[in-house]
Each structure stands twice: as structure tokens, then as C-alpha cells.
């Protein structure tokens, strides 16, 4: 079945596994993609609560720290992340940022032997993260790096 220059979009489903896209393959692609989209995180941020600078950012809106939310340090072990209310996708369509869930994990380093993070979904674009370490059996606010995942 000729495709490519002989049959551009709309792409006829069919052909063979070597030169086409089978109806069954397209059905699998469609349903798998839908499933993944439904549970995919909106963003993953690696940052330090004492720093206003993200260390790494993976977002559905873009990849790289330039696309990261604005991070504000609110004190020791306490930071706020603020996303824009919307972002443009690759076709320049605007989509609202409507955060619903978040999980975070603290990162130990240097003298901090353990760390944990607690998240607070303040608004649909704003998340507050507090980090602690346990010192002499007591949780103490401590600046540590955090991996934050939001949906």
C-alpha cells in the first residue's frame, strides 16, 4: 500500500507493518496515549527550599529551568512555588494550570542525615513546601533539596 508522497494526510490506516499504520496499531496507540495522559504528572521540579532557583524542571509546558515556576523562599525549610495561570502549548493554544495533587520527597546531603517534605496546595497554581529533618528525635525545619511532583 503506497503511503508517503502518494498518500499524505489524511493518512489511510492500513498497509503493512513495514509501510503503514494498521488500524489495530492506531487503536493501541490511541488508548495507551489516553491512559498515560490521564495520570501523567504536570511537572517535576527539583529545587532547594533556601534557593529561589530551580535545579531541574520537567513540565508538560516545557523542559528546563527557564520554564519552571517562580520559587520564593519563605524561611528555613519553607518555600512557595507559583506557576503562571496558563501556558501556551506547541500550537500556541493557551491552557489553564489547574493543580490538583502534589507529592514531594526531601533530599539529604552533608550534615543532614534525613529529610522529609510536606506539601500544601494553596491555590490551583501555587504550592507551598516545608522541609524538615529529625534532630535528636524532633522534627526541625531545615533547608534541603526537594523533588516535587504535581498533577
Amino acid at each position: 500500500m503506497p503511503l508517503g508522497g502518494f498518500a499524505p494526510c489524511p493518512l489511510p490506516l492500513g498497509g503493512t507493518v513495514l509501510d503503514g499504520l494498521l488500524v489495530e496499531q492506531h487503536a493501541r496507540l490511541s488508548t495507551d496515549l489516553r491512559s498515560i495522559v490521564q495520570t501523567a504528572p504536570f511537572a517535576v521540579v527539583h529545587f532547594n527550599t533556601s534557593s529561589a532557583t530551580p535545579l531541574a524542571y520537567l513540565g508538560q509546558n516545557d523542559v528546563g529551568v527557564l520554564a519552571a515556576p517562580t520559587i520564593t523562599s519563605l524561611g528555613v525549610g519553607d518555600a512557595r512555588l507559583l506557576w503562571d495561570v496558563s501556558y501556551l502549548d506547541e500550537y500556541d493554544n493557551a491552557w489553564a494550570v489547574d493543580l490538583s495533587f502534589a507529592v514531594a520527597c526531601g533530599e539529604f546531603a552533608g550534615g543532614v542525615q534525613n529529610a522529609y517534605a510536606v506539601v500544601e496546595l494553596e491555590t490551583a497554581q501555587q504550592i507551598r513546601v516545608r522541609t524538615y529533618s529529625i534532630v535528636a528525635g524532633v522534627p526541625v525545619a531545615t533547608d534541603v533539596s526537594v523533588s516535587l511532583v504535581v498533577w
Binding site: L29, L33, A40, F42
Partner: peptide, 13 residues
């Protein structure tokens, strides 16, 4: 398909 896949591919574990 292309845009959705590109989006979720950025954040998938």
C-alpha cells in the same frame, strides 16, 4: 497525538 505525547513524555517517570 504528537503534542499530547510530547507533553506527557516530558514528565513521565
Amino acid at each position: 497525538i504528537a503534542a499530547d505525547l510530547a507533553a506527557v513524555a516530558r514528565t513521565a517517570p
